[in-house]
Simulated assay, not measured.
Amino acid sequence: MQTVRELNPDLVLISEPYKHLSTQPWETDSTTKAVIWACGGCTFQSSANNNEAGFVVAKLEGIYYYSCYAPPSLTLDEFKNLVDRLTEDAKQYTPIAIAGDFNAWAVDWGSKETNARGKILLESMSSLDVVLLNSGDKPTFVRGEANSIYLT
């Protein structure tokens, strides 16, 4: 919340929030792990897929925003199912922005190697008109020797 106060964005896409805000325009997936927060002066034009597990979508200022979360506990088949549902849903909207924590690694966004989840995600995203925004050189998560660079 401090970062939101400092940066004053209109919209925040969150994976695994520490706390849920009941007083704000706040949309979540069925697991409450993928969140879209309209924290500026804008309001959602529409929202959908609140009953989906793994992603939620909301329209703000003419753009469809997806917030996604794929826990590391998902099997490869469960992960593929989530990504397939996400890409099929995203094909019906334009323009779109997809952000989230997929717990997937790929050299394309700065990981040391591409794992099976990364391959699935890259293949699925290639069917959409999206551009990878990560610079690929700065970790967004660091714990001891481990770090991650998230796909946005």
Rank of each mutant, 00 (worst) to 15 (best):
V57S: 14
N103G: 04
I96H: 01
V35Q: 13
G62A: 14
K33E: 00
N49S: 15
F55V: 00
I96R: 02
F102N: 08
C42R: 03
A106H: 10
P72E: 01
L86Q: 07
D101T: 07
V57D: 13
T75M: 14
A70T: 11
Y65S: 07
N51T: 13
W37C: 01
T43M: 15
A97G: 11
Y65M: 05
N50C: 13
T94Q: 11
A58R: 00
C39S: 08
Y64Q: 07
G41Q: 13
Y66V: 00
Y93N: 11
V56C: 04
A38I: 10
D101R: 06
K80D: 14
C42N: 04
Q92R: 03
W37S: 03
I36E: 01
P95H: 07
D89P: 05
L86I: 01
N50V: 04
E61Q: 15
D89Y: 06
P95V: 06
I98W: 04
Q92L: 02
A99E: 09
L82M: 11
S30M: 03
L74I: 08
G100P: 04
A70H: 10
V83P: 03
Y65R: 06
T32L: 07
N81L: 06
A53T: 12
Q45W: 06
V83D: 02
G54F: 05
R85W: 02
N51C: 12
Q92D: 03
A58N: 02
A70P: 12
P72Q: 06
G41R: 15
L82K: 06
Q45N: 10
N49D: 13
T32N: 13
T43D: 11
E52Y: 08
N103A: 07
G62K: 11
L74Y: 15
G40F: 04
K33C: 00
D29N: 15
L74D: 07
K91N: 05
T43H: 12
D89R: 09
A34R: 08
V35R: 12
C42H: 03
G62T: 13
T87Y: 03
A99I: 10
N81V: 02
A70G: 15
L86R: 02
F55T: 00
A99F: 13
S73R: 11
C68G: 03
C42A: 09
P72L: 04
D84A: 14
N103Q: 05
F55P: 01
T32K: 15
A70S: 15
T94R: 12
A48I: 01
F79H: 04
L76M: 04
E61D: 15
Q92I: 00
I96C: 08
S73H: 10
A58E: 00
C39H: 00
N50R: 14
I36M: 00
